[in-house]
Nucleic acid binder design. Structure first.
Lengths: 207, 207
DNA sequence: GTTATCTTGCACACTGCTGTGCACAATACG
DNA sequence: CGTATTGTGCACAGCAGTGTGCAAGATAAC
């Protein structure tokens, strides 16, 4: 009656599939199940043992990615809204590897809705930030707060998904772009980043 | 021995297919041949009479769209580089209907190369504009000219393909966004558009 | 009115993908 | 060890799409 504990290799393989799917789908959002499974070193048949569907696999991928996104959104707490935006952009960028998938899949008609739901907390953070930035005079006021928020989202998506994540200075570019969109002049953004070099500092990543 | 002139309805149908393809693929870049043909009021079989391939159809679509793009690029001749960018953005926006297809298809792995080739003239214009803007002190200089040009391209693509073309004030939003990216503060952009109201003026379109 | 041109529907072969069933082999767990 | 769990290969059915052949019907051009 009592069931055994799940085998160790099984859970490892499951994680491996998710990793492989993340890497593969980031390049080609329509990669076949077979390609994903192979790139995880497993057979197609095995993948179906871990996930009912292509749907199920992708949903989990989006959920996990969105969680990381949302966690970052909550971790940013600068009272200066310009700094908050810069930090948010930089942090999200560093998670880019886990995020490009979401960005790519978000454009796929079938998953738009799920992605939007999963990212709701992040969007709320951005919306609040846009409002706050306008109120304290840091951000542009020629657009309404919701429009500005939407613009920030879209541009962020673009920057994340269409930049070579490995190239040096990419974080810098991403942050400057978003600050420009928010309405800062490039000199102001430049001053801000000079005053707070930790923001775009390339962190050592522990393996 | 002498061949007859092509039938009138034939050439009309060919044009109709291109129109239908433009409209359909703008929404769903992977729409089937059948859907495209039906939406042109023709049968799938007939479409194959006009175009050898799906490839052939899409290539023609891209070529035609790119031509319009490039023509616009050449038509902009303001000596003030800020104005030139604003005009370029506004004009391209107005051609959005003919352009969203290109923007959507450009993301499709299979046509990236052809699209890039077809749009080469436009890209040259943008690159030259970025350089000029930096030299005369209008644009930001915290990025290299090529990087700035690339950024302008990417953001333009985003704005064009992910905005509701029919909504009022959309042109305005697109232009402001690109000026921000170029490095202008939003107040400067605002002044510029106030001084030159013709740029974002919603033109009457003759049917 | 004749005729070449064009459209249409249907059948067909083909490709690439999804998801499942099943028997057999491998292996981690107790 | 023994055993339940997991991986694998193969076959299979199914779906959606592409591109072609062909015969019959419609129609614009002459």
């Amino acid at each position: 009656m009592t069931t055994r504990a799940p085998r160790r290799d099984s859970v490892e393989n499951r994680a491996g599939i998710l990793d492989a799917a993340r890497a593969t789908l980031a390049t080609d959002p329509r990669a076949s199940i077979d390609v994903i499974a192979r790139s995880a070193g497993l057979s197609r048949r095995t993948l179906y043992g871990h996930f009912d569907d292509r749907e199920a696999l992708i949903r989990e991928l989006i959920s996990v990615g969105a969680q990381r996104f949302n966690a970052i959104a909550e971790s940013v707490s600068d009272s200066d809204s310009r700094l908050a935006l810069a930090r948010l952009a930089a942090q999200l960028w560093r998670e880019a590897a886990h995020v490009q998938v979401a960005a790519a899949l978000a454009l796929d008609e079938a998953h738009v809705e799920h992605t939007a739901d999963a990212l709701a907390p992040l969007r709320r953070t951005v919306a609040a930030l846009a409002r706050r930035g306008q109120e304290d005079g840091s951000f542009r006021t020629d657009l309404t707060a919701p429009t500005l928020a939407r613009l920030i989202e879209e541009v962020a998506r673009t920057v994340v998904s269409r930049t070579d994540a490995s190239s040096t200075g990419a974080v810098d570019l991403a942050v400057r772009t978003l600050l420009s969109i928010a309405g800062l002049s490039w000199r102001e953004a430049d001053d801000l980043l000079t005053a707070h070099p930790d923001i775009v500092e390339s962190q050592e990543v522990s393996s």
